[in-house]
Design a protein around this nucleic acid. Sequence first.
DNA 1: CGTATTGTCAACCATATGGTTGAGTGATAT
DNA 2: ATATCACTCAACCATATGGTTGACAATACG
Lengths: 105, 105
Amino acid sequence: MNALDTTFAALSHEARRAILARLADGETRLSDLAGPFAMSQTAVSKHVRVLSDAGLVTVEQRGRSRYCRLNATPMKQAAEWLSDYEAFWGQQFDNLARYLAESGD
Amino acid sequence: MNALDTTFAALSHEARRAILARLADGETRLSDLAGPFAMSQTAVSKHVRVLSDAGLVTVEQRGRSRYCRLNATPMKQAAEWLSDYEAFWGQQFDNLARYLAESGD
DNA sequence: CGTATTGTCAACCATATGGTTGAGTGATAT
DNA sequence: ATATCACTCAACCATATGGTTGACAATACG
């Protein structure tokens, strides 16, 4: 898997996006991250692992806690990939119109 | 799975991103899509199915061929989600500096 | 008609993902 | 020293993903 693969895959789960949103407010301990989720701490830990493997989160052990920090850098590449399609975002109706025109040939 | 989940998941495979890139050049038949891939047509068909389920591709049967068309609309939502983190993209070194400063306490 | 083209479907396989529980480890507090 | 906190790890489970093959269906061509 390349970087874009792992980045998009990491972003494809709501819990992980929620974790990132939380980290946008600042560094958070793993146990504090787990709070809002109806999920065991182990599960949250696994999600953080996925985010960490994707380079989206930096984990640092201090004392008995693990502090998680957002690293948005990989998102930049993802956003750049998406931006290549910016020109097509408004074209849904154009496509529909073309489809209707073509199917009427 | 919500829309963002399926969109990001669909984008997390290189073959599917390649298919989308190809479709950006215009409508393409499924068999023509399969060409460049070291993969059976069935596998390509499955990828197109994933893209279609995510709303990124519109498939239309004409004669014995299936014509695939790009629909970038779902990407817009994904790009908007990402753009919320734009402010953090440049902060990797800031974060590193802060980390070093804190760990030096 | 028969045959090639274009694709699906079903079955199968290996591996990944997302979750659980229970046990264990290392740091901190009392 | 012991208890508690914050985790990880290993095992297990169910389901999803990504791929294959072989059989089938529908369209088009001659």
